[in-house]
């Protein structure tokens, strides 16, 4: 994994790709979960690379929210519709069901109130796609055990006092939260450190130990089964 989970020191701009066409690996997995022509909200969209890719390859109607001015400018320059704003506070402005998908890639661990944000994602959209670094990854565990210090890996490079990531979780923790919130996991993908997909069940015990990050497609348990859902399974 090169920069898949990295956030800048200001905690906001994701390096989402190295230019047109070259998309960060986890973003390509997210993109695969989106059906063509869908309405998509990318929360913490960084420089807008994913939204641009989705617009070009799947004709989605995309919107972004981004905290950093640099990210917003870069995204607007790409022709992506993005507002400068804060996911912790600004999602409430959107009407319920305004989108088919709300994407939160490598951002949930930087949220003040991740549970509320998840709630909002599944209010404004039928599906949420959430990716996050897995703190249960064996290297993170080993780092803590062997050095007695907070884990820092290539994907989690910041010192504890500098990191924007204030709410780390393991895959197991995340799955527990979805159960508490009556959220159904329609699809889960576990990723290795180099960004490749591993074949482990993303919700099983081994993925929690052996995967550096995970991507989940979520919907409400009481949400109606939809075409969009069927298409991605």
């Amino acid at each position: 994994m090169t920069d898949a989970a990295s956030l800048d020191a200001d905690g906001s701009v994701n390096g989402t790709g190295s230019g047109n066409g070259e998309l960060r690996f986890d973003l390509r997995i997210i993109a695969d979960m989106v059906t063509p022509g869908a309405r998509v909200l990318d929360v913490g969209c960084g420089d807008g690379a994913l939204l641009q890719y989705l617009a070009q390859t799947k004709s989605v109607d995309g919107r972004g929210i981004e905290l950093s001015m640099a990210g917003v400018r870069a995204a607007v320059r790409r022709g992506v519709s993005v507002i400068q704003g804060n996911a912790d506070t600004d999602l409430v402005d959107y009407p319920a069901g305004a989108f088919d998908y709300a994407i939160l890639s490598q951002t949930i661990q930087a949220m003040q109130r991740p549970r509320d944000v998840l709630d909002q994602l599944l209010r404004v959209a039928r599906y949420a796609i959430v990716s996050f670094p897995n703190f249960g990854f064996w290297k993170a565990r080993w780092h803590l055990v062997s050095t007695g210090r907070m884990p820092m890996t290539t994907g989690l490079p910041d010192e504890w006092w500098a990191t924007p990531n204030i709410h780390f979780c393991t895959i197991k923790d995340f799955v527990d939260l979805t159960r508490q919130m009556d959220i159904r996991i329609d699809r889960g993908v576990a990723l290795n450190e180099n960004g490749s997909v591993n074949r482990l069940s993303a919700t099983g015990p081994w993925a929690n130990l052996l995967s550096a990050q995970a991507v989940f497609l979520l919907t409400r348990v009481d949400g109606a089964q939809t075409d969009a859902g069927a298409a991605v399974r």
């Binding site: 109607d61 919107r63 001015m69 992506v80 519709s81 507002i83 400068q84 402005d93 959107y94 989108f99």
Partner: peptide
């Protein structure tokens, strides 16, 4: 203005320039 546009799911970009 942006909040109003968001609440009707309009296509909007917003930047505050420093």
């Amino acid at each position: 203005i942006v909040q109003a546009l968001n609440s009707v799911a309009a296509n909007v970009s917003f930047v505050e320039v420093e």
